[in-house]
């Protein structure tokens, strides 16, 4: 069963307060697939980067712009995240995706948003043109969870506790 098993759509104002809201909502929905703590942290970070780009860049001169987030969960444990804006668009996508490239150094933007999204997901696609907004799609396949995993695999390589069948503090 590899088809879409669940889907959510959300739209919200591109304000910095909503960055935390967006990743909390994404995290809550993706949790339905019982991801590892590390996988969830990575996806939350990727969502945070994408939404921050909408706030800082896409709608910089358009207060009240709307961010559209869609998440689909698939039977093969694939998570599909689409984040879309109707903001200014990106002139040169290749340049924008270069690590450390930023148009806002005075705001201490590190220019690592796309590098983080690429590193924390399996696939990243960006479609944009000036004046037409940006569509960003990220996909990640979560690790299989076996019934034995609750006892067999309580911590990851770094020693951090993983999410298990029993509640973890």
């Amino acid at each position: 069963m590899n088809g879409c098993i669940n889907e959510m759509k959300l739209s919200f104002i591109a304000s910095s307060e909503n960055e935390a809201f967006a990743r909390a909502a994404a995290s809550s929905f993706i949790s339905l697939l019982d991801p590892l703590v590390s996988e969830l942290a990575e996806l939350k970070t990727a969502v945070s980067e994408a939404v921050t780009n909408c706030v800082v860049h896409a709608y910089r001169d358009m207060p009240g712009g709307i961010v559209y987030m869609q998440i689909k969960l698939f039977g093969d444990r694939r998570v599909y995240i689409k984040i879309r804006d109707k903001g200014c668009g990106i002139e040169d996508i290749g340049q924008a995706m270069q690590p450390l490239f930023t148009t806002a150094p005075e705001e201490e933007r590190a220019g690592l948003g796309f590098a983080v999204m690429e590193s924390f997901t399996d696939k990243l696609r960006v479609k944009s043109s000036p004046g037409n907004g940006t569509v960003l799609v990220m996909e990640k396949v979560l690790q299989e969870r076996s019934p034995n995993e609750c006892k067999a695999n309580l911590s990851d390589k770094s020693g951090r506790k993983l999410r298990t069948c029993t509640p973890v503090r």
Partner: peptide
């Protein structure tokens, strides 16, 4: 939680 804003910091 930290995203790349923390790197800027």
């Amino acid at each position: 939680f930290m995203d790349s804003s923390g790197i800027g910091l």
